[in-house]
Design a protein around this nucleic acid. Structure first.
Ligand SMILES: [Mn+2]
Ligand SMILES: [Mn+2]
Ligand SMILES: [Zn+2]
Ligand SMILES: [Zn+2]
Lengths: 133, 133
DNA sequence: ACTTAATTGATAAAAATTATTCTTTATGTA
DNA sequence: TACATAAAGAATAATTTTTATCAATTAAGT
């Protein structure tokens, strides 16, 4: 198991067992909703409070340890922060996949045309995955 | 003023004064959050119920008269359905602008690589608008 | 004009999120 | 290693957001 204690401390967060388990769950499961994370956590900490989940998600968001992905027509999911990437969403099975799309050139072009200084993109491509055609 | 009565009827919705005003407000203001729409509506209908706002937003979403734009780190906004487009978000002043970006070629490429059948994109570019550099 | 199903406003209920309080604990320091 | 302390946890209350219920009203077809 990876050293999540240090990961947490790097982000100015005390390494509690609950937090270590949250990071571990996100690492193992990928994108998770709060309710799913809560169910996973309940298995390990039978008396964990839902407020603990919310508080930690918010803290981890503030400290950029995790980030939120807003899914069309569904609840947000959270994931460990990694290099910028886009998302594929299967509208049938709900599966969410990471996909590396190089948007630099495109974003540069838009930036020039619109005079917007763009430093972040959220790109979600929805449809049907190969199992759901 | 545009004929929103027919617009509503085309979408199988009874043309009530409240609905006509919602469509009109969205046309005039562009992207609106529920709370902002409610405040606008209160000016016209001093006793309109917040439930009416929610019910109509949901109905209009179902009937594809409007669509939801999920904004990073903020509440969703709604807009009248128009041809597919992307969004520019100013992180400083909160301004949201439409921008037409041709993603067809890019999406085709991703579709082939990932074996995903993609039929919709949500693309939000965040940064600072020209007034907020 | 009449009929009827749909919509509205008022309100209650439910769901989601945040705040509070008291107890426990992680972590830095002696 | 023990101690001090700020931070975090569980429990729970409060708040916010959204949906459901219901009686009165109204849009729209005949
Ligand atoms: Mn991802
Ligand atoms: Mn738009
Ligand atoms: Zn699928
Ligand atoms: Zn701006």
């Amino acid at each position: 198991m990876i050293n999540y204690t240090n990961t947490l401390r790097k982000h100015k967060l005390k390494a509690t067992p609950q937090r270590i388990a949250i990071v571990d769950a996100l690492f193992l499961n990928g994108h998770m909703s709060t309710e799913f994370l809560y169910s996973i956590m309940l298995a390990k900490f039978s008396s964990i409070s839902l407020a603990t989940i919310y508080k930690n998600i918010n803290l981890m968001l503030e400290n950029c340890l995790i980030n939120e992905v807003k899914i069309p027509h569904a609840k947000s999911v959270y994931e460990l922060t990694k290099s910028s990437h886009s998302h594929l969403l299967c509208k049938k099975c709900g599966n969410i996949e990471d996909v590396a799309i190089d948007l630099e050139e495109l974003v540069d072009k838009i930036s020039k045309i619109t005079e917007f200084q763009i430093d972040k993109t959220d790109f979600i491509l929805s449809g049907n995955c190969k199992n759901c055609h």
